[in-house]
């Protein structure tokens, strides 16, 4: 037993930290877009750090509880209501059997996470419960959720659940973000002018932004002699610049390899912020050293 999907929202998938260890075979990592909100949900519920959650995009779903469950909502605030009553974000919520949780449009931000005590109980594929939409693998039947789906979750009820006294930094989502990056690995493919353009311009998220990547629009970045490279591996947050000169940031569902020069890589600490931007929002890239990026990463829960 678990949680029944009454209305799924436009794109709701089961995700965890991702399918790592198989990238050398061309298998994408997938996993949550916003690792900070994901970590917070599992922290609130005292779950395993990698317990599977639901990721909702822009518009949330409606769910019915087939038994008592403790749940937590993090990330973008989609105005959650349980049987008509407002419920808080970033706090444990006691959902009774038969209760209905309804979410709407995100007021700010883009992605909301619904965690359940014990985590969604779906069979891991290659060590992960993340949904790989492209190859229809993992998560719930390898696809986004549909009305009528029943998501199994452990029958832990409310018993023995003690809300933790934890101070969680609730992020504030805005329509512009300074995104810190580590330069490279192929910064040499760009002219000095091209690099200057990249750091001095404001880029907007286009409509072509999804779990795979964000296509940005703004000033054209000049390359030395084109941006084609011999294909190599890609990291979460790689900023590749194809020959159009408009950057693309590779996100959770990215392919493992690609053939365009990568001007920079978004630092782990700023990926959660990036994951919550929407089409039309703007970005300015800020260069920091790899050492700074690593010390930022160690301060957080990424």
């Amino acid at each position: 037993m678990g949680i029944k999907v009454i209305y799924p929202g436009p794109l709701t998938t089961v995700q965890d930290r991702g399918r790592t260890g198989y990238q050398q075979f061309g298998i994408p990592v997938c996993g949550v877009m916003d690792r900070a909100a994901f970590a917070a949900a599992n922290e609130i519920l005292d779950n395993d750090r990698n317990a599977a959650v639901l990721e909702m995009t822009l518009i949330g779903g409606t769910f019915e509880f087939t038994e008592d469950h403790v749940i937590a909502l993090t990330g973008a605030d989609m105005g959650p209501r349980l049987d008509g009553e407002e419920v808080p974000m970033y706090a444990p919520v006691f959902a009774r059997k038969g209760g209905r949780l309804a979410l709407g449009m995100a007021a700010e931000g883009c992605r909301c996470y619904l965690g359940v005590r014990g985590g969604f109980d779906l069979p891991p594929v290659m060590g992960s419960r993340s949904t790989d939409l492209k190859s229809a693998t993992g998560g719930f039947k390898g696809r986004k959720l549909e009305a009528g789906d029943l998501l199994p979750a452990p029958s832990l009820g409310f018993e023995g659940f003690v809300p933790k006294n934890i101070a969680l930094d609730r992020p504030v989502y805005k329509h512009h973000a300074n995104i810190r990056v580590v330069e490279g690995p192929q910064e040499y493919a760009f002219t000095a002018k091209g690099l200057e353009t990249f750091y001095d311009s404001v880029y907007a998220l286009t409509d072509k932004c999804d779990r795979m990547g964000y296509r940005l629009a703004g000033a054209i970045i000049e390359t030395g002699s084109g941006s084609d490279i011999i294909s190599d591996g890609i990291a979460f947050g790689s900023v590749q610049v194809p020959n159009s000169g408009q950057p693309i940031i590779l996100m959770a569902d990215r392919q493992t390899t690609g053939g365009y020069a990568k001007i920079a890589t978004v630092c782990s600490a700023d990926l959660p912020l990036l994951a919550q931007l929407r089409p039309g929002d703007t970005i300015r890239f800020e260069r920091i050293s790899v050492e700074e990026a690593q010390s930022l990463a160690l301060r957080g829960i990424y």
Partner: peptide
């Protein structure tokens, strides 16, 4: 050898 962000390193 160059950084590919703070969690990866690229050897070319």
């Amino acid at each position: 050898i160059a950084p590919a962000g703070d969690r990866a390193l690229l050897i070319q």
